[in-house]
Design a protein around this nucleic acid. Structure first.
Length: 501
RNA sequence: GGUCUCGUGGCCGAGUGGCUAGGCUGAGCUCUGCAAAAGCUCCUACAGCGGUUCGAAUCCGCUCGAGACCUCCA
């Protein structure tokens, strides 16, 4: 029996608004598409929360034995600065501001994005397609939508006809919008508009003479609209219908709504079975975003160089911080919360280290209830993760397991009372959920080995001093190490371990 | 204005009808030459007011407060 059969996953589907049992289209396989970053600027911390969420989801599916194809795009063209202007796009604008080629901008911020992802231990997707790499496909689907009568061309631009689409399908099913209300109550556009209706959206935009990102098309030189790239790339790599589409909550409308309309319009069927939206990171209760100016960069977070930060925090502490809340809730950022998270993470991390150093001596006095309670903790980890990827609850179980690991070390829970099979299952679960599922890896400096050896010498001296009952010297060794950030810990058996603060 | 979400103990945060998550902080105990670490214990909450129910943080209504989307945003 496969793990995914043993622990079936249920998830919150934004489309139905309910928690549903996950059933893949092809048994044993998961196809997942997530809207990636627009690479015209550095990713900020809020962005990374979304990518962390889907990192966890793809990790857990794989952990359960699914074969996962995870596609996350790079948007390197096409975001309109304003929907009603003459097609200023963010990449192009940034290029002019910095006197760079558009692809230089794209390259620079793509590198930044990847570097941040690596620091947070967010695994790369299976495929990371770019919008500019799929111009041909975007033109093709636009032609198809024109042929189907779901789009129209005006002055070299092509727009999706939402009203027309709504006649045979339903526009607004994801976001719960009512098309009549959208038409009536939406904001008025300042300038004259080529669109028949303000809710129509661009599939292809004509490039003004000064526009630097442009491609030839049947309608003249231009560039693709924002929404169409995701439809094209998800369809190409995952099929006309696939299992999961994810992204930040703020993309629900209009972006994902438009994707549904385009995909359904072009292919005659709804593209996605399960929509998953991760919620926003907030600062003092307000959404973190570039436009509000309350965002900060991961690099500022690590170094503590942002004015809002009391000090720097390590990537794993931040990762842990985010995993303590559920992805569907907003998460408020604060120094206090991060400091608490850092301590919590260290506790779990040091238990992992402790666990690695334990070795089972063989079962000599089996204790069925101890074995049973350990096994139940293992089961609970799976149960909580399978319940809508509840990382917060899973962490709670891991803390319980960490306490048991410390008991094993101290002798409160003798290893000899545990069946070897049970102990291994427990150890594999703790390690697996920490490292593979939650991606909480150990953070250690590169000089750790050298330092370990050096401190080993000092520990030897302290042992000798203690054996001689020369406590003045043994305390001096400990206190002076403490003052430079090295904490010595005496064990019951006379062994001394150390940790860096 | 329209649509929607949320309001949990000192702090952060799970939880959706009964079985009082967890982390951090604070207090105490055990262990220790003294510490640290670790283990254990305690501080037990659900914005307010009504209602449904044998029973509500959890369902319904109202009030107050905060926020999101409706324009680019993860």
């Amino acid at each position: 029996m496969k793990l995914y059969e043993q622990y079936p996953v249920s998830l919150s589907n934004s489309l139905s608004g309910k928690k549903e049992l996950f059933k893949p289209i092809i048994p044993g396989f998961v196809g997942m598409y997530v809207c990636g970053p627009t690479v015209y600027n550095n990713v900020h911390l809020g962005n990374t929360r979304t990518f962390l969420t889907f990192d966890i989801i793809s990790r857990y599916f794989r952990f359960l034995g699914y074969k996962v194809r995870y596609v996350r795009n790079i948007t390197d063209v096409g975001h309109l600065e304003n929907d009603d202007d003459q097609g200023e796009d963010k990449i192009g604008k940034k290029a002019r501001l910095e006197q760079l080629e558009p692809m230089e901008v794209v390259k620079k911020y793509t590198e930044d994005f990847h570097s941040v992802m690596r620091q947070f231990n967010i695994l790369p997707p299976s495929i990371e397609p770019t919008a500019t790499g799929h111009i041909v496909e975007q033109i093709e689907i636009t032609k198809k939508l024109l042929d189907l009568g779901l789009a129209y061309e005006v002055n070299g631009s092509v727009y999706f006809d939402v009203k027309k689409y709504h006649q045979s399908h339903s526009y607004g099913i994801l976001s719960g919008r009512n098309i009549e209300e959208l038409i009536e109550s939406g904001r008025d556009l300042d300038s004259q508009d080529e669109k028949r209706d303000k809710i129509d959206f661009a599939l292809w935009k004509k490039a003004s003479p000064s526009h630097i990102m442009r491609w030839p098309s049947p309608w003249g030189d231009g560039f693709p609209g924002w929404h169409i790239e995701c439809t094209v790339m998800s369809t190409k790599y995952l099929g006309e219908q696939f299992d999961i589409h994810g992204g930040g909550m703020d993309l629900k409308f209009p972006h994902h709504e438009c994707e549904i309309a385009q995909g359904t319009g072009a292919n005659g069927k709804a593209p996605v079975h399960y929509w998953i939206h991760s919620n926003m990171l907030t600062v003092n209760g307000q959404k973190m975003s570039k436009s509000l100016g309350n965002s900060f960069l991961p690099s500022e977070l690590f170094s503590g160089s942002h004015p809002m930060l009391q000090r720097g925090y390590t990537p794993m502490a931040v990762r842990f911080f985010m995993l303590q809340s559920h992805y569907s809730s907003t998460l408020d950022f604060s120094n206090e919360a991060l400091q608490a998270a850092e301590k919590g993470y260290k506790k779990l991390s040091s238990a992992l280290k402790t666990l690695r150093e334990l070795s089972h001596p063989g079962t000599s006095m089996p204790d069925p209830s101890a074995n049973e309670s350990l096994e139940s903790l293992v089961q609970t980890c799976y149960k909580e993760m399978s319940d809508d990827f509840n990382t917060a609850k899973t962490l709670a179980v891991l803390f319980e397991m960490a306490s048991r690991i410390n008991d094993m070390k101290s002798g409160n829970l003798p290893l000899s009372s545990l069946e070897v099979e049970n102990f291994n299952s427990f150890a594999n679960a703790y390690t697996g959920f920490m490292e593979n599922v939650l991606g909480l890896k150990e953070e250690s400096g590169s000089d750790e080995k050298l330092l370990d050896g050096t401190i080993g010498v000092l520990i030897g001296l302290r042992k000798k001093a203690r054996a001689d009952r020369n406590f003045a010297l043994s305390d001096k060794i400990r206190d002076e190490l403490k003052s430079i950030g090295i904490q010595l810990k005496d064990g019951k058996d006379g062994e001394i371990t150390w940790s860096a603060e």
